[in-house]
């Protein structure tokens, strides 16, 4: 078995400041990797570099493509990278407004990726969209409503449906539960956990919420000041933190 994503020495600087420095890790098929850290620790920069939204200064991101095996994403041509972004990859934004088209109905949002990879049969696109709305617990009669008319939790679930409709193998998530209240968060996490297991997705989840990684992530990477300070199995890192910063992070969560 080969890792689906192999990251080596990824570095991104903003002028003299460090975005993220010398990050290396492997992600195996079906594995969920959590990246935690405080604001400004470089976790979002890292995710953007991985997903090809930002060009890193150094390092390699090797993705195991379906057709050609392991390839460095950073040296791919733009059309190839975009194709990957529409088929094998998915990116769930923190704010659903960044990931959805608000002027277009829920069905159109879900169908966009299908049409982008060549689906040209309206009936089948619509059936697929209806199916996906059901899987993320959005009623089928909301298919022609615009996302503006949806609640925050529904928008986030719609964004997930829109991303997963083409059956990606690797999902990047940036704070998928940010800005939602706790009960909605819990349902969303439940849904995500189900989908990840059912579809065998590999995922990289960036969050500052330790509860999210406790539930979803198999492995954990703790970042501070652009550097990885600790990695390990989720339970191991959270229950027995070794690094001083991780100890601080874990102990600062309120126990109710």
């Amino acid at each position: 078995m080969r890792p689906i994503l192999d990251v080596q020495g990824l570095t991104k600087r903003y002028g003299a400041r460090l975005g993220c420095g010398d990050v290396s890790f492997d992600l195996w098929p079906g594995e969920v990797m959590g990246i935690v850290g405080e604001s400004g620790s470089g976790k979002s920069t890292l995710l953007s570099c991985l997903a090809g939204h930002l060009a890193p200064d150094a390092g390699r991101v090797i993705f195991d493509t379906r057709a050609e095996g392991p390839r460095d994403v950073l040296t791919m041509s733009e059309p190839e990278r975009r194709m990957l972004g529409r088929t094998d990859w998915a990116f769930v934004h923190q704010n659903p407004r960044d990931g959805l088209r608000l002027g277009i109905s829920a069905g159109g949002n879900v169908g966009e990726r299908l049409m982008a990879v060549g689906a040209r049969h309206y009936g089948r696109i619509r059936a697929e969209a209806t199916d996906w709305l059901g899987r993320v617990e959005i009623a089928a009669d909301r298919i022609d409503d615009r996302p503006r008319a949806f609640s925050g939790g529904m928008q986030q679930r719609l964004q997930i449906a829109r991303n997963l409709v083409t059956g990606p193998r690797l999902v990047f998530m940036d704070e998928p539960t940010g800005g939602l209240d706790v009960s909605v968060q819990a349902r969303l996490l439940d849904l995500l956990r189900g989908l990840v297991r059912e579809m065998g997705l590999s995922a990289v989840i960036v969050t500052h919420d330790l509860a999210v990684v406790r539930l979803l992530a198999d492995r954990l990477m703790v970042m501070q000041g652009g550097r990885v300070v600790e990695t390990g199995l989720t339970d191991q890192v959270l229950d027995d933190p070794q690094d001083a910063y991780t100890q601080l992070l874990v102990s600062s969560v309120l126990q109710v």
Binding site: R82, R86, R101, I104, S105, G107, G108, G111, E112, R113, M115, A116, V117, R120, Y122, I125, R126, I143, D144
Partner: peptide, 15 residues
């Protein structure tokens, strides 16, 4: 990258 053009037509039919 013309998937979006069909989204417009999809919206037409949906509505």
């Amino acid at each position: 990258d013309y998937g979006l053009m069909h989204v417009k037509l999809y919206e037409d039919i949906a509505r």
